[in-house]
Amino acid sequence: MEELKRQLKQQIIEAINLEDMTPEDIEDAAPLFGEGLGLDSIDALELIMIMDKNYGIKFADKNESKAALQSIDTMAAYIKEHRTK
């Protein structure tokens, strides 16, 4: 699980260009959107693409993706349960 989280953080940093950040800078439980890391709707689309490309996960609807993409913790948990690759 820890390895998955670290890998996920690295993929997020690359996908949304958080150049100056390292995986250690992102807290597992902190919200990714709004007050936390400060990501927005375009970033959400990039995260959905990470889930699809790297883990073979396609969300059924917006509510489902919203719930899964709250934090590194929720993303990792969702991946663990739903990954197809």
């Binding site: 260009n17 375009i42 990039e46 693409m49 490309k53």
Partner: peptide, 9 residues
């Protein structure tokens, strides 16, 4: 498929 939304905007 998989076009980058950031690039498009």
């Amino acid at each position: 498929q998989d076009i980058s939304p950031t690039s498009f905007m």
